[in-house]
Write a protein that binds this DNA or RNA. Structure first.
Length: 283
DNA sequence: CTTTGGGCCTGGACGC
DNA sequence: TGCGTCCAGGCCCAAA
């Protein structure tokens, strides 16, 4: 479910509530999610002070006073719930990890589909070398991302641009929604071959990717189904979607004759994923 | 090496 | 109401 803006929003919620706080204990309610939980996870969390947070692509990194780092990926349906005075309430069916803080706050990781992942790096581990990050491309909102960099990465790609932008090695943090929206804003058809996109278009694409991610973060992300803020609040960027999940509707600056069934937003399937686009605006 | 397709899970929407 | 089928925001890995 969550892409970069949603993960950023969850990370900020955790940062606000948990930085400097001490973990009293934890309850791990099953052996695995998408991958096994780390060895001795509860032990390694208990008694630690949470020192700071960081986000890398769609991963949340929570640093502990021990020097270890707790790494969380929300998968498709993962949620982090932060509940003041939440201790003592019975966990629900899909509450796979429960962390209780000394101050009475309860942190719940809930994930019905269990596509989420939890890793823990050791004290001396190089986090950038971790399997999740080793081959990952630049942060789209960081200084390492630019039109030139993007074009260099697309130059040797035979795949369509839609798939290339979903590839976390090209640029890290985008998912289906924001790729569809960024291609719309840039006026690029999702079928376009990656290696045919001009330098000018790459510059435009980078600008639009940054804009849309920043706007989505400001809106607290997009709530379609499972996604919620750590305080249960909703994101509202979904109301700004131009094309995503809008098959058959008019795009925002549409001047097409909508009585003609050939006009309006189309849905096609590419590499097994839905792509939404406007044929009139994305040639 | 790159690219594609299947698998992992559950719940919700839909059709009959 | 109940059943079956399809679909979903991501990632990994095997196969081509």
């Amino acid at each position: 479910m969550p892409e970069l803006p949603e993960v950023e929003t969850v990370m900020r919620g955790m940062e606000r509530a948990l930085t400097g706080k001490v973990i009293q204990g934890a309850l791990q309610r099953r052996p695995d999610l998408r991958v096994s939980f780390p060895e001795r996870l509860v032990e390694r969390l208990s008694g630690q002070t949470i020192t700071h947070f960081k986000r890398r692509a769609k991963y949340i990194l929570m640093s502990l006073s021990s020097g270890e780092t707790f790494i969380l990926h929300l998968g498709m349906s993962g949620r982090v719930m932060i509940i003041p005075d939440g201790q003592g309430v019975a966990p629900e069916k899909h509450d796979h990890l429960v962390i209780d803080m000394v101050n009475g706050v309860r942190v719940i990781y809930r994930d019905p589909r269990r596509f989420g992942m939890v890793y823990m790096t050791g004290v001396n581990d190089d986090i950038a070398a971790h399997q999740a990050f080793a081959k990952m491309g630049p942060e789209p909102l960081g200084n390492e991302f630019s039109g030139e960099i993007l074009q260099a990465r697309l130059k040797n790609k035979k795949t369509i641009i839609k798939s290339a932008l979903l590839d976390q090695r090209v640029v890290a943090g985008l998912g289906n929604i924001y790729v569809c929206e960024a291609l719309y804003r840039t006026g690029i058809n999702p079928r376009t071959a990656s290696n045919t996109i001009s330098a000018a278009k790459c510059n435009d694409l980078v600008r639009h990717i940054r804009d849309i991610l920043n706007e989505a973060i400001k809106s607290g992300g997009s709530t379609l189904k499972d996604y919620r803020h750590t305080d249960d609040g909703l994101g509202y960027f979904q109301h700004q979607f131009a094309v995503y999940d809008r098959e058959g509707l008019a795009c925002p600056d549409c001047d097409c004759d909508m009585m003609d069934a050939r006009n309006g937003i189309k849905r096609i399937v590419q590499a097994g994923r839905s792509s939404f686009y406007c044929p009139a605006k994305q040639k």
